[in-house]
Each structure stands twice: as C-alpha cells, then as structure tokens.
Simulated assay, not measured.
Amino acid sequence: MLKIVGKDSSINVRKVLWTCVELGLPFEREDWNPGHAALNPNAQVPVLVDGGFVLWESNTICRYLCAQYCDGALLPVEAQARARVEQWMDWQATDLNTAWRYAFMALVRQHPAYRDAAQVEASIAAWNRHIAILDARLAATGAYAAGAHFTLADIVLGLSVNRWMMTPMDKPALPSVAAYYDRLALRPGFRTYGRNGVA
C-alpha cells in the first residue's frame, strides 16, 4: 500500500490525497516526524513511499501516480494533451503560488515576518490578477483548465482556488471560477481534501 507522509492540512499533501481518491488508490497517511528525515533532505511534505520507491515534490508525486497507476484519463499520454495539463500545473506551482504567498502568510497564517501593508496589497492584486487569468481560461473551455475534461491540472488548481476563496480579502467577481468551484464540489475527493471537508 502507498504511504503518504504529511499532515492533511497541507495544501501540497492534499494534492496527493485527492489524486489517490481520483485514481482509487488505497493509501496510509502519516504525519511527518523526525524519523522521516531520511526520506526527504528538505524535511518537507509530502513524501510518497511506494514499496521501496521514495519520492518528494507534490506535483511530481501526482504525475508519478498517474503514470504508474492510471490509464491516461488524468494525465494524457499523447504529448500535446499532456503538455497542456502540465502547463497549468507548472503555472500553479510557479506564477500563481508566488502571487499569493505574501498575502496568505499575512492574512491567514498571520506570520510576523509578513506585516508590510504595501506588500500585502501588492500580493492581493497579483493573486486576483492570476485568478482572473484562470477565469478567462475557464470561460474559453467552458469546463476545466486543460479543456473539456477533468485532469490532474484541476486538482492542483482546485486547491489553489479554494485557498483564494477562503482567504479574507477583497476579490473580484469571477463567474467562470465560481462555476468551476461548483463543478469540482461534485467530486468526492475535492469535498474531502480540496474544500476543507465542506460539502
């Protein structure tokens, strides 16, 4: 059985847990403890243990699970279709995450190192601007990030949308993102791991 190391309150751990639900994969989850230090030199979660194979980095773990245990439904085999999915995954991990980090740390985590009001406002503006990019994409596809069908890109983006919606800040009305959020809420894995247990 797969072992996933990391608390299920972590957005990156929840990517992996939701992916396992979508793929119908049984797993055991353990909180990180000092005994796990040999699994990841960065001492970060999630870590996947699949038999004797150990892997870290959440998006890489999700890709591996799809490649190893899926028929291509979540992560297509065909090069261009796969690239479209991975494009949105990489955008989430780089551009979008960079945009929200300061505001989230200030407003939700209330971390003392993130108290510069101007930087908070700049981060909120960047975060809203990036979610508007996703809104435009969803308006164009009418469904999901990579096109008409749910893919691995929607797991990583769905968690980011949930974080955006849950953060107490001013947000523009983005109807395509709102409709997307409702579509994702029909999926049991999202209700459990993507929407903080809210049905």
Rank of each mutant, 00 (worst) to 15 (best):
L107R: 12
F53G: 00
C62V: 13
R63W: 04
V85M: 01
T19L: 13
P26L: 12
A145I: 11
P34S: 04
D182E: 15
C20M: 06
E30I: 07
Y193N: 02
Y193Q: 00
V5G: 00
Q87R: 14
Y180D: 03
G194E: 04
R82Y: 11
A73T: 13
K7F: 11
L75D: 01
K171Q: 14
D50Y: 10
A125R: 10
P41N: 05
R163N: 10
E86H: 02
H111E: 12
V5E: 00
E78C: 08
M105W: 08
W32L: 14
I155R: 01
V45M: 10
M166L: 14
L159S: 08
P26H: 05
A148C: 04
W32R: 03
M1D: 09
A122H: 09
D182P: 02
P26N: 13
N128T: 08
V161L: 11
H36T: 00
V21T: 13
D8V: 04
Y102L: 09
L55I: 08
A146T: 09
L25K: 09
V85H: 02
M166W: 05
A103Y: 02
W18F: 09
M1G: 06
F150Q: 03
M169G: 00
I11R: 01
W127S: 02
H149L: 05
K3E: 15
Y69I: 10
V108P: 02
V49T: 05
A185D: 06
R183I: 12
R129H: 12
Y193W: 15
L157P: 01
R82E: 10
R191D: 00
I155K: 02
D90C: 07
Y69T: 07
G147T: 11
N128R: 11
H149A: 13
A83T: 12
W127D: 04
Q119N: 10
Y144K: 02
A37W: 04
G35E: 12
L25Q: 06
V77G: 04
I61S: 01
G6S: 05
M165F: 14
G189D: 11
E30L: 14
A99C: 11
A79Q: 08
V161I: 15
R109E: 13
G51I: 13
V177S: 01
A199R: 11
A173M: 05
I124W: 00
Q110H: 14
M166F: 04
I61K: 03
W100P: 01
D135A: 08
E57F: 12
V177W: 09
G24T: 09
A37N: 11
L134C: 07
W56V: 00
W100N: 12
A139S: 13
R115S: 06
V177D: 07
E78P: 01
V177P: 01
N33Q: 05
M166K: 13
W91H: 03
I133C: 14
H130A: 02
T60Q: 08
P172S: 03
A103N: 06
C70L: 03
